[in-house]
């Protein structure tokens, strides 16, 4: 079995700060991590590899330092890792990104046919969830999004059954291989890398592909040129003119503060008081 897992290296958005003066993102010092959603995809792929044997090839489009993210994936047990990196990719939106990734996957498929492509649900920096569907469309493979569980895989019969999260319930879908799966979070628990895995990853020769290596045919479809969406401005949220009406427990007591608070709220919002009374008496 040959599975390709697409990942992205992203800034750890939990640690991102906005520069209070220039209102821009402060990237320095914010560690770059493997997009957490991608790890669920990777673990699922590794479990299939454990079951069926074969290879898991990691794929990432990014700047040179994204190599670290691929290395981390190798430490979990992936077989191979390819970093598609080229200045020409800079500024790509999701449409241009899916074009580049699809081309690279086709190239990878020439070395060994690909049975499944996995991606995470979305990234924590873009949050669009668009690249997975885009890649599937371009490769002409079946798209299975928000997969919570892989129910069955029949490698010889080229069939796969998955549970897909929908509103109010779960769809049981059956499709054929190859397919592209975007994996839901919380669906599995990542394994721990052994010492050997860590050392192997530290030494691993991550393959680097530029746009030619990745088989990009139409340069107008990558990078900024290939991106229909344009960011016209970036800004911080409008600060509210007045800060909260503050009280401190340290000044008086929790009792006083809470009684004060209730008095203020209910004076200003009598309807709210009515509503809460209704709820409690119900």
């Amino acid at each position: 079995m040959h599975i390709v897992v697409c990942i992205k290296q992203v800034p750890d958005s939990a640690q991102i700060r906005v520069h209070p003066v220039t209102n821009t993102i402060m990237r320095q010092g914010v560690p770059a991590i493997v997009n957490p959603y991608d790890l669920f995809a990777l673990e699922e792929a590794l479990r299939l590899k454990d079951r069926f044997g074969g290879r898991v090839t990691m794929l990432c489009m990014g700047p040179p330092q994204a190599e670290d993210a691929l290395r981390k994936c190798i430490s979990f047990g992936a077989t191979d890792a390819i970093l598609v990196t080229d200045r020409a990719f800079a500024g790509a939106d999701t449409l241009a990104t899916s074009y580049a990734l699809a081309a690279a996957i086709r190239k990878i498929g020439q070395e060994q046919a690909v049975d499944l492509v996995f991606t995470g649900k979305q990234t924590i920096d873009g949050d669009t969830a668009q690249v997975g569907p885009g890649v599937a469309k371009r490769l002409g493979v079946n798209l299975l999004t928000y997969v919570s569980r892989i129910a069955e895989v029949d490698l010889d019969g080229r069939r796969i059954q998955v549970e897909r999260r929908a509103e109010g319930g779960v769809q049981l879908l059956e499709s054929t291989l190859p397919s592209l799966i975007t994996m839901l979070e919380g669906t599995n628990e990542m394994r721990f890398a052994s010492m050997d895995d860590m050392l192997r990853a530290a030494r691993f020769p991550v393959r680097k592909w530029n746009k030619e290596d990745a088989g990009i045919e139409d340069l107008a479809k990558i990078g900024l040129k290939g991106s229909p969406t344009i960011v016209s401005k970036v800004f911080g949220p409008t600060p509210r003119s007045t800060k909260a009406d503050m009280q401190s427990v340290a000044d008086t007591s929790a009792q006083d503060v809470t009684l004060n608070l209730l008095q203020k709220i209910f004076t200003a919002h009598p309807m709210l008081e009515e509503e809460l009374v209704e709820r409690l008496s119900a």
């Binding site: 939106d93 999701t94 449409l95 899916s98 873009g126 949050d127 669009t128 969830a129 668009q130 690249v131 997975g132 569907p133 885009g134 599937a136 469309k137 371009r138 798209l143 999004t145 928000y146 897909r164 999260r165 929908a166 509103e167 991106s227 229909p228 969406t229």
Partner: peptide
């Protein structure tokens, strides 16, 4: 931007080769 909407929007935007802004 539901599971259905995002699944569909991504595929349609790619087919049409147009821009899609999420969330």
């Amino acid at each position: 931007a539901t599971t259905m909407g995002r699944d569909l929007a991504g595929s349609v935007a790619t087919t049409l080769g147009t821009g899609l802004t999420a969330d």
